[in-house]
Design a protein around this nucleic acid. Sequence first.
DNA 1: CGTGAACTTGAGATTTCTCAAGCGGGGTGG
DNA 2: CCACCCCGCTTGAGAAATCTCAAGTTCACG
Lengths: 254, 254
Amino acid sequence: MSGRLIANLGRNTPLAPEDGAAIEALLGAVRTVPADTELVVDGEGATDCHVLLEGQAFRHKTLPDGRRQIVFFHVPGDLLDLPLVFLDVDYNVASLTMCRVAPVSRAKLADLIEARPRIGRAFWRMSLQEAAIQREWMVGMGRRSAYARVAHLLCEVFQRLQRVDLVQNNRCRFPITQTHLADAAGLSGVHTNRVLQQLRASGLIELRSRELIVRDWNGLAAAGEFDPAYLQARSAPSPALAGPHRAAPGWKPS
Amino acid sequence: MSGRLIANLGRNTPLAPEDGAAIEALLGAVRTVPADTELVVDGEGATDCHVLLEGQAFRHKTLPDGRRQIVFFHVPGDLLDLPLVFLDVDYNVASLTMCRVAPVSRAKLADLIEARPRIGRAFWRMSLQEAAIQREWMVGMGRRSAYARVAHLLCEVFQRLQRVDLVQNNRCRFPITQTHLADAAGLSGVHTNRVLQQLRASGLIELRSRELIVRDWNGLAAAGEFDPAYLQARSAPSPALAGPHRAAPGWKPS
DNA sequence: CGTGAACTTGAGATTTCTCAAGCGGGGTGG
DNA sequence: CCACCCCGCTTGAGAAATCTCAAGTTCACG
């Protein structure tokens, strides 16, 4: 269960069993928090980072007058506040569902990253992939229609959930409300609602009562101009590993 | 001259002279390229990263049909393709002016980052700061008006140029055309033009013939809802020092 | 002095927003 | 067990922001 982070890291970078063990050893007492709770608050000088073991969450920046921009959706296995290891965090993280979260000492994590190249590399890749996802969102918000933007977002979340085995039969739990989707896409709630209706009417998805069913993946990807390349979590230098899915060689959650 | 990268890294992380020397030692033969040249092309499996020693450049992602989204502006001292050290790059970089660029072996840079914690930390911070800037752009594109977005962009570029001493008397060279600005803000060229006229009419800026003069910094910052905190001028207390939390609030000329 | 890129301007077309209201289901107190 | 309430969703319609198309105009540069 708490092997989620390791599995996630290991997806892109081969980790030896002792690497996994070293990371696990840093995890503090698991905390369970309800939905709609702020897990990470910026500018709080926290001493711990947070690993999301279970549940879903999102990063957001909220302006003084209440406008909110969601900048990332988290799936299990994500480190919610990697920046905190070396800087301050500039965003908040809130839970979408009940979540299980484990703290990791920021100082110890920094030490581990610096002491073990393989682990360091794994975190570098995780961090750089986040940045790549952010860039893709920028393309969406700057240059794609509302329709494509929402479709793209659905594709991304769906695919990332798929990677952590949270999709069965093209169907997954989907605690992201239309308001969240709107705040992520930079749209109003009303317009987001209309766009979703179009997606439904086109037979691409079903979405209701916190569940998403993708009826036509190719159609949805086309609607969203979704090219999964930017998620392609493969390491360039050591193309030793195969397929995009599965595999965390050398380490299995115990 | 080629100390630019070191100066840039050292701005946030104390580097010892030997660290600087180690980095310098990796720099390859400096290349001079004209304006409007692609410096970095995604998916090319390059073996070298690129340091921008002089000149200005921008990162962009261009869609098949020609729509373009600029995702970052570079100033001297920037590493143009840090992601390449550990992954593939997912964007292109093009020059805005004539540029001087030095190659750095990706493998050697990776080794150096892993071998020297202080250097590694410096690159981590650089990378995380980029990510923070990207998030701020997301907020702009998703939740700010065209007017605020453009003003914010001007503030950011201006301030980053200031840090590398490219501003004198509130005045700097500004090779970013209205079309670039439009592609960065996610606006049409026409609308960007109109927004700039408003900014000029409000007495906030002068902008013509590739030069920007900020006439009213506070006014411009207010128009752009610009809070420099996200640029993280200062490093968070390093875990080793374990000082009380002191988030770098907007820097103030003291 | 010619040329092209960058910048301006005008005006109608679209997308997206805002306001306002109504619907629906699940959770809760009575 | 039922009524009520709240949140998330839906719908309608006018308003606003932004876009596109289509011409000019300016200016650096050869």
